[in-house]
Write a protein that binds this DNA or RNA. Structure first.
Lengths: 224, 224, 224, 224
DNA sequence: CATGAATGAGATTTCATTCAT
DNA sequence: TATGAATGAAATCTCATTCAT
């Protein structure tokens, strides 16, 4: 039908081509991610999401059941994105220090580029991970993350470059935490310390700082 | 005293201490902190706060203007608590390593003991620190925190125990971040990694881990 | 059509004509006019308007934003009605005295027939015309009213029937004021003077009185 | 007690000396008049009146029973003021035209100087004069006003200066109406006609206009 | 006489969701 | 599939009035 002359009196919307389910669904998901990460789950408005997406409100219910279903879809989509990206890192080809550096900086840059991920984590933790626990899709994604780190640590320990008693989960939480707190709390931190933590020079410096901290920790302890 | 008959006219009801403004105000603030940190600003219900506090809903408006005014009071009160506690640490009496250890563990235990602080930070950052920026009371509290860390770093550098190029704000963000992420995201992290991060043995281990990471980073770099 | 069976699926309920936006909107506007002119803006109750209109309270917000938006719509609608009616008077076809008489009596009868207009003016002036000033629709309506009177005065002056120094705005305020005060204050005036000013014989007499006053004023001053 | 040293810790308010019943009562009445004439009866806030008066809210109830009692007091006080002033006019000493002129201008200037009177009339008429009807004090004030006008008209008719068929109540309503509408509706009229009706030059001109209208009407009709 | 904390009823407004077309 | 009017429940906030001191 597109391209043909619309009948007089027919609304023809360029922005949101009706009758394209895939596109409608994607538009809703994108809009919901933006709205929910900006306002939180309770703060997000169903009306606002529909408007942002340029679709009728009724469609949200058609595709996602209700607001909670929509939130769950956003959560799964967002978690899948980072875990998928991590798998594509290919750390096995690098020496342990370079691999660790790559992992740390990847994580850091992912946080910079995807503030919606940080925001969603905050929202989900306020919910005591209730939706995450309901999701069957998210948990399986995380085994490979631990494997990745474990392999890297093992290689480093064998080469005596890393200490040999590092817990991969504990380490991951440290790597993520060093970046997460800075980025997710940048608004309050910038205010109380009177510095603009979002300035790009500062972001780059922070990345190096995190690498230094992690590598210092991984260094084998000298015997005395 | 319990069990005995209260004299007529005597303030007796613990739940609703009428005619005691200080107590009423404090009860509202306490209830609001609990409700807001559990549900977020938009998720918190004014009715629920009033009920928790055992006061008439009207009183919230009497003392705090509106929901936003109440939130601001909670924010100021909560920030003041941690900054006040930090000042009482008296790190100057300890050697640099012991002082740093004390600061790190204090921060870590403060997060464990005051999950409402973490939650409030998440909420306020979702608001892009809008309320924090409005508050005249909070910002002045933070100069002394930086001074504290700076003094410690200086003493350590003079004694050649710490490297001499450490930015105190960057370091503070790392110390806090290593604990913050673990605690504030404990629900999602416990779920995706299949471990109960809130178990007390794990909390103690995490504290030692953070100390190790920080001290490893502060160690002067060896010349070669 | 009344009495016949409505087809299934046909709009049938007079009280709540669902799915007929025009009708719903009009019903709300009508109900709001009645309630607001009876009680004033602050005295009017949103619940009462919804009930009078036979619609869900939520619809007021759907169509008019909030109570103030609804009030503005009532104001614009009410002003438009009188100004439109005035334009339909066709005074140009009459001789000046007959034309003036028609204008004066039209104004007088309009006030008798539309007490809601008088009431709304009182309310709006208590607001210091705040809403009128915000309205872009109302002011343009008034140029033609002045033109109408000006043309009449000019013809009368040319024919030496009217004095030639009459300000049209001042005159309009007098014509309106002679009727407005009587009608808008009829409750207090009836009480303090112990007469029922709303009796129809009195209303007719007042109309003639106003005509006399206006024409006496317009009479050219005799030279001596 | 005044003049003596206040005990330390005692609040001593200069603005509203406590324990002076007359003054407290008057302050409340003044504040209530201002608030009610500015906002209407439903729009006026008891809290705002108390604050304006600088007294405790409880005092309003002590002196006036409730909000309605306070409104009634304001109404009676305000009506008494104009009727008392009218009695002091002493029109009997002047020739009829000068007397009428004096009465007309007095009325006009009273409206200019006492906008609260106009506002209160609007409010009371919105109430359909319900409070006025309840008041035993107000009605008796009005006989003398009619007498005053009647005497003036009679003298004028005897001297063949005025027509002899004028109804004094109808005339009073016209005199008042010519000023009332201009002043009470000055905000809407100024807006729709794009002129500032409150400018002092315009107010003076309006006064002369009203005098002209009234005297033209009173002029005896010429026989033909 | 005076204070101001406290109250319950009710006001406006918001929100996720469903219905009729 | 798509639309947008309609809804009921519940949220925030307001208000005149009373209570304890």
């Amino acid at each position: 039908m597109e391209g043909s002359l619309p009948k007089p009196g027919t609304k023809s919307r360029v922005a949101s081509p009706t009758r394209d389910p895939e596109r409608t669904r994607a538009a809703i998901l994108r809009a919901a991610t933006a709205e929910i990460t900006a306002k939180g789950l309770t703060g997000a408005r169903v009306d606002a999401i529909a408007e942002r997406a340029g679709v009728n409100k009724r469609m949200l219910y058609h595709y996602f059941g209700d607001k909670q279903g929509l939130y769950l879809a956003v959560l799964e989509h967002t978690y899948a994105a980072i875990r998928t990206a991590e798998i594509g890192l290919n750390l096995t080809e690098l020496d342990p220090v370079a691999g660790m550096r790559k992992l740390v900086l990847f994580t850091w840059h992912y946080f910079i580029d995807h503030p919606e991920f940080l925001s969603l984590l905050a929202t989900e933790n306020m919910n005591r991970a209730a939706y995450l626990k309901k999701s069957k899709a998210i948990r399986p994604l995380h085994g490979s993350l631990v494997d990745l780190i474990e392999a890297l640590l093992k290689r480093g320990a064998q080469q005596k470059i890393f200490r040999d008693d590092v817990d991969p989960v504990e380490l991951y939480i440290s790597i993520a935490g060093l970046g997460f707190f800075y980025m997710s709390n940048r608004h309050t931190l910038s205010t109380i310390f009177g510095k603009n933590l979002s300035a790009s020079a500062r972001l780059a410096a922070r990345g190096e700082h995190i690498v230094e901290v992690v590598l210092a920790y991984l260094k084998p302890v000298e015997k005395t």
